[in-house]
Amino acid sequence: MEMKELRGSRGVLAAVALLIIFIGVTVAFVQLNGNVARGISPEYNRLAHLQQPNSLSAWVYDWRGFDTLIETGVIYVGAVVSVLVIGRGLVRMKQVEGEEPVPQTSLDLKIGSVNAILKYFIFPLVILLAAYGILIVTGAATSGGGGFQCGVVVASAYLIGAVFFGKKNPLNFRRKFLIAIGSFGWALYALLGLPGYLVTGYWQYNVGTDLWSSIAGFPAQIPSILHTIFGDPYRLALVLKGGTFYSTAGIVPLINIGEAFNVIGAICLIFLVFIYGWSDTEEAKA
């Protein structure tokens, strides 16, 4: 790609235009300084402790949980599309002869040059990183962090393993396995909305926490069986200044696990396919 388009008078014109944009945006930011309105967020903060200590998790996975479902979808779609460009699922028209897609070969990754002593240090690091990822997701309701962080940490463990050990990675994920857990994760997240939907009509109503069924106008009562399944396993006692509160994060920890699976599947798959390429015949053999 040459930059000759932006030379000469065109370049001057573009520079002037960029200057105008710069001035406009700066004026806007200066005006915004000190005038930011708070909106609904104080209300969120006031309600957070009724559910779980990690109020960020309550925001992201409960109040705006459906929003996050679609964001998670962006990661899933990102994996599907990246892998598709490499070769998984390219399609041809039956009736039309065209150029055949060029198969992507694997990267020239020489792990033989890695110092053997380094491998002994890296091996426990990979295991510890993976364990740390699992720790993050299991404590998501009480501590900072959640499914996405877990996924990224585990994926980084996987990448380190791939760089130092090649195909003898301690986390030896296969392509089909990664696709399966990614799909499982997103499907789990999506379907965790079903119990609340069936009982109240609101998709992804948090049946375990059940904050709102006592408010006038709420369409249904939550049966106690759903409290038992989705609420009791995550019940917490919060000792705060105002007294001791009993709360449960409800379906949020489960959503976090779904999110973690999705992110692990998606990001590891992108790494794997970018390093080793995609070949349908190889996949059929495996």
């Binding site: 699922g89 390219l90 399609v91 041809r92 009736q95």
Partner: peptide, 10 residues
Amino acid sequence: SSLRKNIGPY
């Protein structure tokens, strides 16, 4: 009906 190969992802 008009595509061949692995149509699932598409």
